[in-house]
Nucleic acid binder design. Structure first.
Length: 776
DNA sequence: TGTGAGTTGATTTTT
DNA sequence: TCAACTCACA
């Protein structure tokens, strides 16, 4: 083969690209040029004469699919190629074969919110009681079951724990609800497809034959359902290529099973394996941190990324006083770099564990005048006003969709209240008909008194008009919904900013509808549009080209890269997340998440944590993440913006109990009264010649012991925060490790082994100046 | 039936 | 913090 793109490939990469028939495993480390390899391979297949219609590429995000398509299109002429997410692939397949799984082809796709409503209403309509568990917990359990391909019956036979017993009771009810609404949830898309392929051998064979070459991206994130689907399509033509990186498996909580990739060679004994470990993205300094962090995972195949580029700058670990300061200074730092012309706004990304952490950062960027885009704020299609309008379309497309019915029947308010709804529900249940059909029945309508009866008749008439238009262009249909229902009026007569935003969103929905119409002139129709609204997410309209800084979660960052990366809130309870602390497997997943974040960075990486964090409405003392203690700090630049001599001194504070740190008022007070000249800080940081504004070196964390204890008086801290093996810091003795703990409450005593000079000391925790650095 | 205040309770990550 | 839900009142 003599395709031009072979020139730029390394030997390992070229091997993967050249591979054509038979199973192939590409173990691709972060930044090893995987996407390139994958697209080159597809191009190679096409240029070798394989019709593109025989290729199937499955990804997890639309963005990955789009990127692949674009790159591929730039290499070879493309006409008919199936490159999409798992969910979209399944959705399309199911539309064609809906009857085989008991659905009609116009089935609705419930998002998480809709599913939860369905679940609640299923429980309400039964005599089953769910004690001790929230619908969300049960929904989660059902989702897990589906990802493991367990139907209600199989699940019930295995239910043992209290939660699963309750779930076993609810699961069939929920499933009935979905079925009677002619709807599926996200998990059903996979489950039904897997079922379809297993129960219909001829169909399976036919699809296997059509999709001769299957490629799966991010294979480490596949769950059992996806695994089965992929395998079913690779029986007669086992030309299955999978790529992935076990170290980047971060969706275990969603049922992803790393074993799928680890066992690939067992599943396909004749598989070829290509390992890509050379990194083309990051500097050696960044890679060193990444390698070091990930090496702490026990359940792992050892692997090490390397590169031959110049070392680059040291990775920075920064301690800020508060989250506000963290945000401001990062924004100021980015602003400085932009002014210095070294970087542009689009080069920077700020990554965090949870979406809730984005708020300060947004404010700070706005204050600095840095344009930014935020990935996955409140997703567009999940906003109330959008879901309301879409509800009409969903109901028009699938009149059985009771969840959509319930959403729109009294939106905007038409005087159809709880009592009326109850009767509709009863009628619908006893007559086994959808709610919309119920209110179209004279029998029910006549039983109502004049007011609700009239309102219902009006709705039926209005909706009939909408339904007639269901076959026209989507934009027209949305327009018709708006004009018939007067939905937008409630926002028009208001001048609050929020309502203005809602109006704007509705406008944008019209735009989205028009774009859809333009792109799909042959009209897959309403189905296709609704599918899109259910299956896209905000990562997908992330603008690559825009010169804007990016804010997003560590999860969404997977697959991306930026010259400048800031990872914030690397703190105990946040990263690793509260709920992942106890269990080794999830703790390791958290570590991989951090690894993913680190390996996004091309040139500069900063990792930060704060001393006080305002989170969930409370200001609390934050503890640095244990992961920080796993980093090779001697090869990093350690900074703090909280000079210890500035710590607040107050006698009265000592008398307060040790759990004072939980007391929100005390710390709100602490922060407001902080004597530090925050104004000046901001000013100085505006200077372009100071890319690292106001940060003083935090020697205290390591070699230097900082000012003496007399110089400061730390606020009390709960002894409960200390654990055996934890790394701690003492103002006079420096860093050390907790080697023993005894006593309780006020008398709780710790024995600490200090490093430099080596010595052992005992402390009463309630009164000591010891502070945790990290857990073992 | 609709509204608004007040309470409660939950809070990861996403197709 | 914030959204969902409850409850009292118009």
């Amino acid at each position: 083969m003599n395709e031009p793109f072979f020139d730029d490939l390394t030997e390992a990469q070229a091997t993967a690209v050249r591979h054509m028939d038979g199973p192939l495993l590409i173990l691709a480390g972060a930044g090893s040029g995987k996407t390139r390899v994958v697209t080159c391979r597809m191009a190679h297949l096409i240029l070798s004469g394989i019709p593109s219609a025989n290729l199937l590429g499955l990804t997890f995000t639309n963005k990955a699919a789009d990127e692949m398509r674009q790159r591929l299109a730039s290499m070879v002429p493309l006409d008919d190629i199936w490159l999409s997410t798992f969910h979209r692939f399944c959705s399309r397949l199911l539309r064609h074969h809906a009857a085989l799984v008991g659905l009609s082809e116009n089935f609705s796709i419930f998002d998480t919110q809709d599913s939860l409503h369905a679940l609640k209403s299923a429980v309400e309509g039964s005599d089953s009681t769910i004690i001790h568990y929230t619908p969300a917990q049960i929904a989660r359990a059902i989702s897990n079951a589906k990802n493991d391909l367990l139907g209600p019956d199989e699940y019930a036979s295995r239910a043992r724990s209290p939660l699963s017993t309750v779930t076993a009771e609810v699961y069939p009810l929920y499933q009935q609800r979905l079925l009677s609404s002619n709807a599926v949830d996200f998990d059903d898309l996979l489950l039904y497809t897997a079922k379809l392929l297993y129960e219909n051998p001829e169909l399976r064979q036919q699809l296997d034959d059509r999709f001769r070459y299957v490629l799966v991206d991010e294979y480490q994130d596949t769950n059992l359902a996806q695994y089965r689907i992929v395998r079913a399509l690779s029986v007669d033509h086992p030309n299955l290529a999978v790529t992935g990186d076990p170290d980047q498996s971060i969706y275990g909580w969603r049922g992803a099973n790393v074993r799928n990739i680890l066992d690939f060679e067992k599943d396909y004994p004749d598989a070829s394996t290509v390992t890509l470990e050379q990194n083309y993205r990051s500097t050696p300094n960044i890679l060193q941190i990444a390698n070091e962090v990930i090496s702490h995972n026990v359940h792992r195949k050892p692997k090490s990324l390397y590169t031959d580029t110049p070392a680059g700058n040291l990775v920075r670990m920064v301690n800020y006083a508060t989250n506000q300061e963290e945000a401001q200074q990062i924004a100021a730092g980015i602003a400085g770099l932009i002014r210095s012309d070294k970087y542009r706004a689009k080069d920077a990304a700020i990554l965090y564990r949870t979406n809730a952490l984005s708020r300060n950062l947004e404010h700070a960027l706005r204050d600095e005048g840095i344009p930014y885009q935020i990935v996955n704020g409140v997703e567009f299609y999940k906003r109330k006003e959008i879901k309301d309008v879409l509800g009409y379309l969903q109901l028009a497309n699938n009149p059985q969709n009771d969840i959509a019915f319930l959403r729109v029947i009294n939106t905007p308010a038409r005087g159809i209240g709880r009592k009326t709804l109850q009767r509709i529900e009863e009628f619908s249940r006893s007559n086994h008909c959808p709610m919309l059909a119920a209110i179209e029945s004279e029998e029910l309508l006549q039983s109502f008194s004049s007011r609700p009866g009239k309102a219902l008749r009006q709705f039926v008439a209005d909706f009939a008009a909408i339904r007639v238009a269901a076959t026209s262009l989507v934009e027209e249909l949305v327009g018709l919904v708006l004009s018939t229902t007067g939905y937008a009026d409630q926002y028009k007569n208001s001048d609050t900013e929020e309502d203005g935003q809602r109006l704007a969103n509705i406008q944008e929905l019209l735009t989205a509808a028009r774009q859809y119409d333009e792109r799909n002139p042959d009209a897959t129709g309403l189905d296709g549009f609704l599918e899109q609204t259910a299956l896209v997410n905000d990562t997908d309209d992330w603008e690559v080209e825009a010169d804007k800084a990016t804010l997003m979660t560590l999860h969404s960052a997977k697959g991306m890269e930026f010259p400048l990366i800031f990872i914030v809130a690397v703190e105990h309870g946040i990263l690793p997340h509260e709920r992942s602390r106890d269990d080794l497997m999830s703790l390791e997943e958290e570590r991989r998440l951090l690894f993913v974040g680190i390996t996004r960075a091309q040139r500069e990486l900063q990792i930060s944590y704060v001393t006080h964090r305002d989170y969930r409405g409370k200001v609390r003392r934050a503890i640095p993440s244990e992961f920080l203690a796993e980093m090779p700090v001697h090869d990093m630049e350690l900074l703090t913006s909280e000079p210890t001599s500035h710590r607040r001194q107050s006698e009265s504070r000592d008398s307060r109990a040790n759990n004072e740190w939980e007391n929100n008022e005390v710390f709100a007070d602490y922060i407001q009264d902080d004597p530090r000249p925050s104004q000046e800080v901001t000013e100085s940081s505006r200077r372009p010649d100071l890319p690292n504004p106001v940060l003083t070196t935090a020697a205290e964390m390591l070699d230097d012991h900082g000012p003496s204890a007399a110089d400061r008086r730390a606020e009390p801290i709960s002894p409960d925060l200390f654990e055996l093996g934890m790394l701690v810091n003492h103002p006079d003795y420096g860093p050390g490790k907790m080697i023993a703990l005894s006593g309780s409450s006020d008398k709780r005593t710790a024995t600490v082994q200090f490093l430099n000079p080596p010595q052992t000391k005992k402390f009463r925790l309630a009164h000591s100046l010891l502070r945790p650095i990290a857990s073992p």
